[in-house]
Computed example of a mutant assay.
Amino acid sequence: MRLGNAGMRYRDIVDPQQSADRIAMRQMMDAARAFNTAQIWPEINNATVEQEAGLPHIVECDGLTVHDCGQAFAQQFQGRRLWCRRNCRSEFTVAPIRDDSLSRDTGRRFSFADRTEAALFRRTWG
């Protein structure tokens, strides 16, 4: 009694058409992932000087800190970030506003590549 046909299994694994189909599917999935990532996550973390130069529209949220908001900080901060992720097509970044004389953050700076998105953010979050 023989268990399986090794030649057939090998042929199924290395079938050129099947390999080409897998490569094509992988390329389509990679392209879709890249497109969706750009649409879903336009946020830049730890922006470089060059990236910051491309984000000239700034909205400062003074008082958006743990010290000023207490337990409500996380909800308020994440609400603003989620708004940006849902509504911004262009890049944006968030950075703390630091006051060295107080040795703490005094707010958050939202920087946008698009002027209209910055204006909508300012109107929504005042």
Rank of each mutant, 00 (worst) to 15 (best):
M1L: 12
M1V: 10
G4R: 08
G4H: 08
G4F: 08
N5K: 10
N5E: 13
A6P: 00
M8K: 15
M8F: 15
R9Y: 14
I13D: 09
I13G: 04
V14Q: 05
V14P: 02
V14Y: 10
D15S: 10
D15Q: 05
P16Q: 03
Q17K: 15
Q18N: 14
S19L: 14
A20N: 03
D21M: 11
R22T: 11
R22Y: 11
M25N: 11
R26S: 10
Q27H: 07
Q27P: 04
M29N: 13
M29A: 13
M29D: 12
A32S: 14
R33I: 08
R33P: 02
R33M: 09
R33L: 11
A34K: 11
F35T: 13
F35N: 11
T37L: 14
A38L: 07
A38T: 07
Q39I: 10
I40F: 12
I40P: 01
P42M: 02
E43M: 13
E43D: 08
I44Y: 05
N45W: 08
N46W: 07
N46F: 09
T48W: 04
Q51H: 05
P56H: 02
P56G: 06
H57L: 06
H57N: 08
I58L: 06
V59I: 09
V59H: 01
V59Q: 00
E60R: 13
C61R: 03
C61V: 13
C61S: 07
C61N: 03
D62A: 10
D62K: 12
G63R: 00
T65W: 03
T65L: 03
T65F: 02
C69M: 15
G70H: 06
G70Y: 04
Q71A: 09
A72W: 06
A72N: 13
Q76T: 02
Q78H: 13
G79F: 05
C84F: 00
R85S: 09
R85G: 06
R86Q: 13
C88I: 00
R89D: 09
F92V: 03
V94C: 11
P96A: 15
I97G: 04
R98E: 14
R98I: 13
D99V: 07
D100T: 14
D100Q: 11
D100E: 15
S103V: 06
R104F: 06
D105S: 15
T106W: 01
T106I: 15
T106S: 02
R108W: 02
F110W: 03
F110V: 00
A113W: 02
A113C: 06
R115W: 04
T116P: 01
A118Y: 00
F121I: 06
R122P: 01
R122Y: 07
R123G: 04
W125A: 00
W125R: 01
W125P: 00
